[in-house]
């Protein structure tokens, strides 16, 4: 999944320009990598081992340094409840899996601040 997202974002057809994609293997990895930011956008799955996507959103929203970072959550269609929770915790967007590169581009375009190279991380 991470490889898929990376490939889609780096695809010139995405129209995102040059992107710098940083991958995190787990929620912990994400916590480790966050201070090396700033990042324009974090893309995270909800279901991850240990720290889940909801916890990551809460952490980002409560943190002084990362509060402004945008978060796009992804998860399976079935988990309506998790989607609602994510959004109420302060995620900026939600993309149900499975999705096509086009759907990803559109969601990312919507949540990416217009300036600067895009960056992402994903659990």
């Amino acid at each position: 999944m991470r490889a898929f997202v990376r490939a889609a974002l780096e695809d010139p057809a995405a129209g995102l320009g040059p992107v710098d994609v940083v991958e995190a293997a787990t929620g912990f990895d994400a916590l480790r990598l966050l201070p090396r930011g700033p990042y324009q956008l974090v893309i995270s799955d909800i279901n991850m081992p240990h720290i889940n996507g909801l916890e990551l959103v809460r952490f980002i929203r409560q943190s002084d340094q990362h509060r402004e970072t945008r978060v796009l959550l992804i998860s399976t269609q079935a988990s309506e409840r998790d989607r609602e929770r994510g959004l109420s915790l302060g995620a900026d967007g939600y993309l149900p899996k499975p999705f096509t590169p086009e759907e990803l581009w559109s969601a990312v375009g919507q949540h990416l601040p217009s300036d600067a190279p895009a960056q992402r991380r994903d659990g």
């Binding site: 909800i46 081992p49 399976t76 899996k97």
Partner: peptide, 17 residues
């Protein structure tokens, strides 16, 4: 095992390293 699995659950483990 608080593994949450999702579409990626497996990928995470498989490609984590």
């Amino acid at each position: 095992e608080a593994d949450r699995l999702d579409e990626d659950g497996q990928n995470i483990e498989r490609t984590g390293s």
